[in-house]
Design a protein around this nucleic acid. Structure first.
Length: 439
DNA sequence: GCAATATTTCCTGATT
DNA sequence: CAATCAGGAAATATTG
């Protein structure tokens, strides 16, 4: 009977104290309810957690190895309750152990102490301990992404370097729920990112650079419609929201590039330009090697179109310079960066997100998939930003677009400048598809 | 390391 | 005349 008393105590004491609303973890979780059911479900979906209510156990969110004795007891109580086990069969006098000890128990030992529940406990423990690494890596990934896009925006003061409108600290330009999701994830359970539009889509692969966060965009930063059921869009550099300096009458190449060059923080400004911090998928911020060209002698010689100075530049894509060994990221970045978004997907994603579009592109005939570039150079810059290629121009982008004709990803639209049409091998742009993907 | 794929870059010429 | 369009050619980057 001691067992029954013990368990009563456990329930009365721990559930009343440990689950108090003051629990910081709860504090972090609670707001989820204001952001839509999806997030909540996502966050709390770990079957290990006592989800019957909205409460959170003292042991949840912590690795079993680090549980205190109280947490161990708490967890055992939960398991007893959950498995509807006869507590009298359990020798609670032998439960006085911390998480580390518990984890070191062999299944037989657990069986000895907990009877039939022992096996269950063992497997639960195993699941919990083994699931953490994934959890952490996911969170790390998520944070990396967030921090990357955040830093990117910070590091990109725009063409003029002034007006840094809502340069998007998370709290400002990101839809509120997004930052929240990170928080929630940290304190609760793991979950892969929300379903993405589709693979390779700019929406999810990485924090894309085109979320309209500019001050000139009155609505976007407020986290409009797209917030809830759709993955977060991207962050549009503020400078894309307004007229871009390089879109002046004369310009394209040189001006545009110099603008981008300006956006590269000067060395030593500490704007996280450390090469060590960059990583492949990574920090889009790393205006990397490609950007060196804007500063180095070679770049100065040739980055301005039509100024070959000493002979012509060789054809083809210039080799990336100074590609630092990426070992600096060892461990963290074991995986390849996700396959990059294809150009056509990038275009499509801008088109299907009117909030992000900001006058970059427009549908000419949505049903037919006909669209037009309104600010071709801005789109090109954006694409370049995404690909960490500061010298991207519409001319180059359009060349890539033309290659899509052969593959039926795009169809020609004769006689109309800046107008393209999605072909049969493209997808995800039709209204039905877009709606469907927002479920 | 290699091949395939997807651009990226440059260029020439035509068209708008 | 400038901006685009069309494509060829050659080169790199990324993936499998």
């Amino acid at each position: 009977m001691a067992a029954t008393c013990e368990i009563s105590n456990v329930f009365s004491n721990y559930f009343s104290t440990m689950y108090s609303p003051e629990d910081p973890t709860l504090a972090s979780v609670a707001p989820a309810t204001t952001f839509g059911a999806d997030d909540l479900v996502v966050s709390l979906s770990n079957p290990q957690m006592p989800l019957e209510g909205t409460e959170k156990a003292s042991w949840s969110g912590e690795q079993p190895q680090f549980w205190s004795k109280a947490q161990v007891l708490d967890w055992i109580s939960y398991q007893v309750e959950r498995n509807k086990v006869d507590a009298s069969a359990i020798d609670f006098s032998r439960c006085d152990m911390d998480g580390a000890t518990l984890c070191s128990c062999a299944p037989e030992e657990l069986r000895l102490v907990f009877g039939p529940l022992g096996d269950q406990l063992y497997s639960q423990l195993w699941d919990m301990t083994s699931s953490f690494p994934d959890e952490l890596s996911w969170i790390i990934d998520l944070l990396e992404k967030d921090s990357a896009s955040f830093q990117e925006t910070l590091g990109d003061p725009g063409p003029t370097g002034e007006s840094t409108p809502s340069l998007c600290p998370l709290s400002q330009t990101r839809p509120g729920w997004e930052g929240h999701r990170v928080t929630t994830a940290l304190v609760t359970s793991p979950e892969p990112p929300l379903p993405l539009l589709d693979q390779g889509s700019a929406f999810g692969q990485e924090s894309s650079p085109y979320h309209a966060g500019g001050s000139s965009s009155s609505t976007v930063g407020e986290g409009p419609v797209l917030g809830c059921s759709r993955p977060p869009p991207l962050s549009l550099s503020p400078w894309l929201s307004g007229p871009t300096p390089w879109e002046g009458p004369e310009l394209a190449g040189a001006s545009a590039e110099s603008c981008v060059a300006h956006s590269t923080p000067p060395p030593g400004t500490g704007s996280s330009q450390s090469p060590r911090c960059s990583d492949s998928g990574g920090s889009d911020l790393d205006l990397d090697p490609g950007d060196n060209r804007l500063l180095c002698s070679e770049g100065c010689a040739d980055h301005k179109k039509g100024e070959p100075k000493h002979g012509k530049r060789k054809r083809g894509r210039p080799r990336k310079l100074g590609r630092e060994p990426r070992d600096c990221l060892e461990g963290r970045k074991s995986k390849h960066a996700p396959r990059g978004t294809h150009l056509w997907e990038f275009i499509r994603d801008i088109l299907i997100q009117p909030e992000l579009n900001e006058g970059l592109l427009k549908w000419e005939d949505r049903r037919e998939g006909v669209f037009k570039f309104l600010r071709s150079e801005a789109v090109a810059q954006l694409w370049g930003q995404k690909k960490k290629n500061s010298s991207m121009t519409y001319e180059k982008l359009s060349r890539a677009m033309r290659y899509y004709y052969k593959r039926d990803i795009l169809e020609r639209v004769d006689g109309r400048r800046l107008v393209y049409k999605f072909g049969k091998n493209s997808s995800g742009w039709k209204e039905e598809e877009v709606v469907g993907s927002q479920d």
